[in-house]
Amino acid sequence: MMQNAKLQVEGMSCGHCVNSIEGAVKQIGASAQVDLAGKSVTVQYDESKVTLEAIKAAIEDQGYDIV
């Protein structure tokens, strides 16, 4: 079942940040849409394949803080 979640993320400022986060989330089998102005990341994922905690960890591993 597909789930959506909106995460507040600090430390994103540019296109590189967008690519880092979207790439990291894609690597674990989910998709992310980054809103730099809103300091948020909307993720879509299949909870039978990946957990929200794993997605958060992937974003934090890129050096960003989830609030």
Score class of each variant (00 low, 15 high):
1 M>S: 15
2 M>W: 07
2 M>N: 13
3 Q>P: 04
3 Q>V: 10
3 Q>C: 07
3 Q>A: 10
4 N>L: 04
4 N>F: 04
4 N>S: 04
5 A>T: 11
6 K>N: 05
6 K>Q: 09
8 Q>Y: 08
8 Q>L: 09
10 E>A: 10
10 E>C: 04
10 E>G: 00
10 E>V: 09
10 E>L: 12
11 G>H: 10
11 G>I: 12
11 G>A: 12
12 M>H: 06
14 C>P: 05
14 C>E: 04
16 H>Y: 09
17 C>V: 13
17 C>Q: 03
17 C>S: 15
18 V>A: 09
19 N>H: 04
19 N>V: 02
19 N>L: 13
19 N>I: 03
20 S>A: 14
20 S>D: 08
21 I>K: 08
22 E>R: 15
22 E>K: 15
22 E>H: 15
22 E>N: 13
23 G>L: 09
23 G>N: 11
23 G>Q: 10
23 G>A: 14
24 A>T: 07
26 K>Y: 05
26 K>E: 02
27 Q>R: 14
27 Q>G: 09
28 I>L: 09
30 A>Q: 00
30 A>G: 04
32 A>I: 04
32 A>W: 01
32 A>N: 02
33 Q>R: 14
33 Q>H: 14
33 Q>K: 15
33 Q>G: 08
34 V>D: 01
35 D>M: 11
35 D>K: 11
37 A>H: 11
37 A>L: 08
38 G>R: 13
38 G>H: 13
40 S>Y: 07
41 V>L: 05
42 T>Q: 11
42 T>E: 12
42 T>C: 02
43 V>Y: 12
44 Q>A: 11
44 Q>H: 14
44 Q>Y: 10
44 Q>V: 12
44 Q>M: 05
45 Y>K: 08
46 D>C: 07
46 D>M: 10
46 D>H: 14
46 D>L: 07
48 S>P: 03
49 K>V: 14
49 K>D: 10
50 V>W: 05
50 V>A: 13
51 T>H: 06
52 L>S: 08
53 E>G: 13
53 E>W: 04
54 A>V: 10
54 A>Y: 10
54 A>H: 06
54 A>D: 08
56 K>M: 04
56 K>P: 00
57 A>F: 09
57 A>Y: 05
58 A>W: 02
60 E>G: 03
60 E>M: 04
60 E>Y: 10
61 D>W: 01
61 D>P: 01
63 G>P: 02
65 D>R: 15
65 D>Q: 11
66 I>K: 06
66 I>C: 00
66 I>M: 01
67 V>T: 04
67 V>M: 02
